[in-house]
Simulated scan of single mutants.
Amino acid sequence: MANGSRQAAWEFFGTELKRRREDAGISQVELGSRVFVSGGYIGQFEQAIRKPQLDIAQRIDEVLQTDGIFERLWQKLIRDQRYADYFAAVVELERLATRICEFAPTVVPGLLQTAAYARAVTIAANPFVTDEYVEEKVTARLERAHILKDATRPEYWVALHENVLRIPVGGPETMAEQLEHIARLMRERTVWVTVIPYAAGAHASMTGDLRLMDFDDAPPVAYTETSFSGTLIDDPAVVKRAQRAYDLLRVAALSPKASLALIESAAEDYRRCPSTT
């Protein structure tokens, strides 16, 4: 579904939610309290500013007695078989974000991956799948990166642990191409990337990926991910803790200039390595 069509469909979701809520004689505040979100969130759902998570859509169906219509709409609009269920909502939010701040401890973030790197990561995690499956995943990942080419692209801040530079995903040629791609985006000022060196020692987020997203007309969210699951967080207190953790990561990182030099040096080292393919 194209972005414009998807947004129009979310506007229908919001309009239908407002109509069903008003028909039931329930205010935004009352519905919010009964599905465990604020009344303001209900208003944002109705205006298609923000998308509810699946459990909220299910609770709305229960409260309004709508026979599962909002769950079915959610499944149609959010669920994309190219992404894990826990990540599909994050892809939608990426398109709306005005700023994305990301920490990657071991693997280049999806928005920065080249096709060869994405292919190597996908095969490593799924060694028995078909080529068609691999290419579908790679295509989906590259499509996500289109938001960095838009005129209204978000500010994209990335903190990479030095692990990301040193783990030879896909071999020397793939790694050289990948790091050169990141360096090029840095020089073009499309992204702001810093590296947390091994010398920094322990850091604020050592258990998995962390992402923060800000929006013009909605509160910020955080997303954390481990190998087999991810969690989208909109609780203000927890998001604030995640923001503090990211601030600490930035303090531990090298300067942008030193980070660029390290990335380019690592790329040169891979270029000098004999190919293993």
Results as ranks from 00 to 15, higher is better:
193 V>M: 02
112 L>F: 00
117 Y>D: 02
242 A>P: 04
147 I>S: 05
143 E>S: 05
241 R>D: 14
239 V>G: 02
135 E>H: 06
32 G>M: 09
232 L>G: 05
236 P>M: 03
58 Q>T: 10
227 S>N: 13
33 S>E: 15
66 T>R: 03
265 S>Q: 15
20 R>K: 10
249 L>S: 08
50 R>E: 12
120 A>T: 09
207 T>P: 08
48 A>C: 01
257 K>Q: 13
118 A>G: 05
186 M>F: 05
10 W>M: 05
202 A>L: 13
146 H>M: 14
109 P>A: 06
130 T>E: 12
155 E>W: 14
156 Y>R: 07
226 T>N: 06
97 A>N: 03
46 E>A: 06
149 K>W: 10
120 A>C: 07
132 E>M: 07
200 A>V: 12
86 Y>F: 09
1 M>Y: 04
35 V>P: 09
199 A>Y: 12
173 E>A: 14
169 V>S: 00
148 L>M: 04
41 Y>V: 15
212 L>P: 05
42 I>H: 07
19 R>A: 14
26 I>D: 09
152 T>W: 12
259 S>E: 08
208 G>H: 01
249 L>W: 05
122 T>N: 10
253 A>Q: 09
78 I>F: 01
220 P>A: 02
92 E>Y: 08
242 A>F: 13
141 R>A: 03
88 A>L: 08
217 D>S: 13
256 P>Y: 08
125 A>H: 13
53 Q>L: 11
275 S>Q: 11
209 D>C: 07
227 S>W: 08
237 A>G: 06
110 G>M: 00
96 L>D: 14
84 A>Y: 10
35 V>F: 10
1 M>H: 02
7 Q>E: 13
188 E>D: 11
104 A>K: 00
92 E>V: 13
199 A>Q: 14
113 Q>C: 04
172 P>L: 08
38 S>A: 14
48 A>N: 01
8 A>I: 07
212 L>C: 06
148 L>N: 00
10 W>Y: 09
238 V>M: 06
199 A>K: 14
138 V>E: 01
221 V>Q: 05
60 I>R: 06
23 D>P: 07
139 T>K: 09
14 G>M: 00
76 K>V: 13
182 I>W: 02
140 A>I: 02
122 T>A: 11
238 V>E: 13
45 F>C: 09
38 S>N: 12
247 D>W: 09
129 V>W: 11
260 L>N: 02
4 G>S: 15
232 L>N: 05
29 V>G: 14
221 V>G: 03
157 W>Q: 07
250 R>M: 12
56 I>N: 11
162 E>R: 07
208 G>L: 01
221 V>K: 07
32 G>N: 11
128 F>K: 15
242 A>I: 12
83 Y>L: 03
133 Y>D: 05
67 D>Y: 14
15 T>W: 02
31 L>I: 12
16 E>L: 06
109 P>M: 00
47 Q>K: 11
201 G>Y: 12
88 A>Y: 03
229 S>F: 10
107 V>A: 01
74 W>R: 11
211 R>S: 04
16 E>M: 12
135 E>P: 06
189 R>P: 02
181 H>F: 12
49 I>S: 05
237 A>W: 09
47 Q>T: 14
166 R>Q: 15
